[in-house]
């Protein structure tokens, strides 16, 4: 019963994060929201008795892919600045 309430809460948070990632104008906030979606999804995997998948998702989905997005964003920003000069 407790697990049911926790999973409903997690589902609402996951959907809210997906909404923020799509609607938000600021792209940095959108990337952070996509990473947070992965993090909450990994808690949901833990409730669904899949600790292996939860570990992978927490390390890769919210760690490495977020950092790759930020690297690309930084590169694009510096290229834009150089073009303006």
């Amino acid at each position: 019963m407790n697990f049911l309430i926790i999973s409903i809460l997690l589902g609402i948070i996951i959907l809210a994060m997906a909404g923020i990632a799509i609607i938000q104008k600021n792209i940095v906030v959108a990337i952070i929201a996509a990473g947070a979606l992965s993090l909450f999804a990994s808690i949901l995997y833990l409730l669904l008795a899949a600790p292996d998948v939860a570990m992978t998702e927490a390390a890769i989905g919210s760690g490495l892919s977020t950092i790759i997005f930020f690297y690309v964003l930084n590169r694009i920003r510096t290229t834009d600045e150089r073009n303006e000069e």
Binding site: P51, D52, A54, M55, T56, A59, I60, G63, L64, I67
Partner: peptide
């Protein structure tokens, strides 16, 4: 530790590799 104990506890090569890559980052 995670990938050496992959056959006993949750974990394994993919998780351990991702953790090593986060040390590299």
């Amino acid at each position: 530790y995670i990938f050496i104990n992959g056959h006993l506890s949750p974990g394994g090569g993919f998780q351990g590799g991702a953790v090593i890559a986060s040390a590299i980052i």
